[in-house]
Design a binder for these strands. Structure first.
Length: 205
DNA sequence: CTCACGATTGGA
DNA sequence: CCAATCGTGAGC
């Protein structure tokens, strides 16, 4: 029996706002992965990036394609894609239908280390989900989860900041940093990356 | 059909 | 610095 309280889950309506508003507010929220074998993996979001309409770095910028169709759909849905032929990236679709936008989740602080993590990676346990490809690896997120609504009856969903976390932002003991985005060739000057200041779990400190 | 490339990562 | 590795999407 787990007696820890869990925050309410995030609804479509909360995600149905401009991506640059949702992205910083997702910091401190929890991403939950329910595996078929019953295991549940949980991590607090500590780094995000926004991708929106009129943004040349956004996959949806040049119009609808089979892969990016989901970005044009309703908010609160997962957009997962394969990058460099070997890693997946997980995004939360935002804003109204027909507006291509999503928040890339770039790093998590895991609540607990999964048992199956190889010894090699246990040397730096806080770095296991520090990066968009790495967090998808550890949470076993791939494209089969793309286009799925992020609700608790599915394999993947989001929970709001806990009261404790909310208080840390409120009293300024936790703060957000805002910078330009990582790894792009277009839209390099748009300051749409946010991370939890001082976190040891972000992808690029 | 062909082909250049990528919202990455780990290792030399 | 560089290779790994393959789906995507643009061009022909």
């Amino acid at each position: 029996m787990n007696c820890n309280s869990t925050a309410p889950h995030i609804h479509q309506q909360w995600c149905d706002r401009p991506v640059e508003i949702v992205a910083p507010e997702l910091i401190g929220c929890t991403l939950v992965r329910q595996l078929a074998n019953g295991d549940q993996l949980r991590g607090m979001i500590v780094e995000t990036e926004a991708y929106g309409p009129d943004d040349p770095a956004c996959h949806g910028y040049r119009g609808r394609t089979p892969r990016t169709e989901v970005m044009f759909g309703p908010a609160g849905v997962a957009y997962v894609y394969l990058i460099y032929g070997m890693y997946h990236c997980f995004n939360v679709v935002t804003d109204q239908e027909n507006i291509a936008s999503a928040v890339l989740i770039r790093a998590l602080e895991l609540e607990a280390l999964p048992q199956w993590v190889p010894d090699k990676k246990r040397k730096q346990p806080h770095r296991i989900a520090a990066g968009p490809g790495k967090l998808c690896q550890v949470l076993q997120i791939d494209r089969t989860l793309s286009d799925r609504p992020l609700i608790p009856s599915e394999a993947l969903w989001l929970e709001h900041r806990s009261p404790t976390t909310q208080q840390k932002f409120a009293d300024n003991s936790w703060r957000l940093c805002q910078t330009t985005r990582v790894g792009l060739s277009k839209g390099v000057d748009t300051p749409w990356r946010w991370y939890l200041e001082g976190s040891s779990c972000i992808s690029k400190p």
